[in-house]
Nucleic acid binder design. Structure first.
Lengths: 348, 348
DNA sequence: TTGAAAGCGCTAACAC
DNA sequence: GTGTTAGCGCTTTCAA
């Protein structure tokens, strides 16, 4: 059964081109092109005439033809691990908002942190002639690095660390932020603090959060117990599991530094479901501060990871690069802070 | 400061075209095109030779040129209200997964449920020559309807009701699902059930959830009290607010039917923060069943809204239409169910 | 099985 | 200010 939409479609199969407009308006294609593109070298009267015809004919420029002729598609590629994960969705929104502001569209694709897919997607984006790419990834592997290096268009990394420091990127200071978080727990007198990190193949987890955790402990002359380091998946259930694992220990931890809000909530619920009180018995600090952080009791104290901003700034940076503007610094670090709520005791 | 990436870019500024491959392989462009497109009418030896040159030259077809020549871009437009909202992100993932499976890319754009933007975005998509569009919207307004009617490409509505029944769409039976949810509360003996709906300019809320709520009440000969109908925003905080509003009533409700998980969690926390127990004092049933539903205590009983599936099926339907395959029914209804957890008492 | 050539719809010199 | 004319890189008849 065909829809009305279809019937209509068959009624208007003809696309009107710049040539049609030119003919109807008695001008050349060049002139039509000029008015469409806002070129000032057109007599007002001519412009008006052309505009009228455009309206009458419902002319709509063909972006593909334009892209082929001008070598600019005004679309950028966005490669992220998983749009259904709040973290990336938030960043994607930041990217899209700024893209829209600068009149770019976005081709969005999920990589599932799979190197194969990332590589394929980069190639797809190159093929689609995007004007630039914003990429989020767990780790810039050698192969990824190589592909990016040969990219025909600029690439900006968002919330993604490239250890070679060769690409434009937008991040926060993960090490410092994590250090402060662990310090906050230490200041509350905890000797045994667990770190539930999220996957360690993620560079940020392995090189910054974990290292900061260790540094904070050793700076405070506390023992680093590998049993308290749990590289979980990052999900709510992993949070619960982490709690269960760690609570069977002879000397269980009294505080947790969690790599994400979901993880943190899992830990909180794990504790509460077993009769522990947060923050009285167990203190938890998270790293993310999504809206979830307020949707638990107690609400989570959390390092603020400004995903939206990271996305937005990355896209803004990309527009500058695409535009060949001067860039002060191609590796931007956004300020961070810790939002204090109730999952950690006040100490003052 | 220019990155290495840039230096490299300037070192390889030449794009290799189908013409280069043809010349190097001593064949015509047509032949190269054939092997690139998997056309069988090529002698194996020729194919091999061409493939070698392609590899050697690192030739990558220009999708824009291809799009112009073939009038197919293998990209579809996706217009959703807000990717940072879990509901839409989930659907977007479904859409993208199936799109990828059928080798389409996706241009993703946020409309913020703003009719202006939706109209602009549709135009943008038409201009970009997408091969089809998946759209999610609160309401198919007359203007939207008109634009879609004149669309040069097929459009499928996902999780979006078009009252004219003119467009292809994928949904669940919102009325029936809501009716069952309210019935469950009625069966537990509640006489005063509040409906916290989310914005009523959303067709699904106003025409289905609300109507079903009223019908269920009146079928059970219960009074419909307008004070118990709260068209909130849909956020966590609105849930809390709804609770507060309704609890000042002379006869407050003892149960809630919430339009989304966030709303439901807000209500649960509102109740708990004021010393009420869920489900002992207050029962709550939600409509969404995102992963949030399990991330509260008590976990939420919720109507299952299969967003991922809705997106996936919508995209699949779109591929069929783009492909001019026979469609059994252009309005597909996915089965729904209620996931029973702890925010509603067992009654058996 | 292969090639020649005509576009696809637009931009961008360049000339007038 | 405006028009002419090459392309942009590819697909697609149509012939051979």
């Amino acid at each position: 059964m065909m829809s009305l939409q279809y019937k209509n479609k068959e009624a208007y199969p003809l696309t009107v081109t710049i040539y049609d407009v030119a003919r109807e308006a008695n001008v050349s294609m060049a002139t039509v092109s000029r008015v469409v593109n806002g070129n000032q070298n057109v007599k007002p009267a001519t412009r008006k005439k052309v505009l009228e015809v455009i309206e009458r004919l419902e002319y709509r420029p063909n972006a593909v033809a334009r892209g082929l002729a001008s070598k600019k598609t005004t679309t950028v590629g966005v490669i992220i691990p998983d749009i259904s994960n709040n973290i990336y969705a938030e960043a994607a929104r930041g990217i899209e908002d700024i893209a829209t502001m600068y009149r770019y569209n976005i081709i969005l694709a999920n990589s599932d942190q799979n190197e194969e897919k990332e590589l394929t997607l980069l190639d797809t984006m190159y093929g689609k002639q995007v004007d630039g790419i914003v990429m989020m990834s767990d780790a810039v592997t050698p192969k990824l690095h190589q592909s990016m290096d040969h990219s025909p268009v600029p690439i900006v990394l968002a919330g993604t660390v490239d250890e070679s420091n060769q690409f434009a990127s937008v991040n926060i200071d993960y090490f410092q932020a994590s250090y402060e978080a662990v310090q906050m727990l230490i200041a509350n007198g905890h000797k045994r603090i667990a770190f539930v990190s999220g996957p360690l193949h993620n560079t940020i987890n392995s090189k910054f959060k974990l290292e900061a955790y260790k540094k904070a402990l050793s700076d405070a002359r506390l023992e680093i117990d590998e049993q308290l380091i749990l590289p979980e998946e990052g999900s709510y259930d992993s949070g619960i599991e982490a709690w269960e694992t760690v609570m069977t220990l002879e000397q269980p931890p009294t505080a947790f530094f969690a790599g994400s809000d979901e993880l943190a909530i899992g830990i909180v619920h794990g504790a509460q479901d077993n009769g522990y009180k947060v923050p009285e018995d167990i203190e938890v600090i998270s790293f993310e501060n999504s809206k979830l952080a307020r949707m638990v009791r107690p609400q989570l104290t959390s390092v603020v990871l400004p995903l939206y901003d990271i996305g937005a700034v990355a896209m803004r940076l990309l527009t500058k690069i695409m535009n060949k503007e001067e860039i002060e610094d191609q590796e931007v670090i956004i300020p961070h802070r810790i939002e204090v709520r109730k999952s950690v005791k006040k100490n003052d």
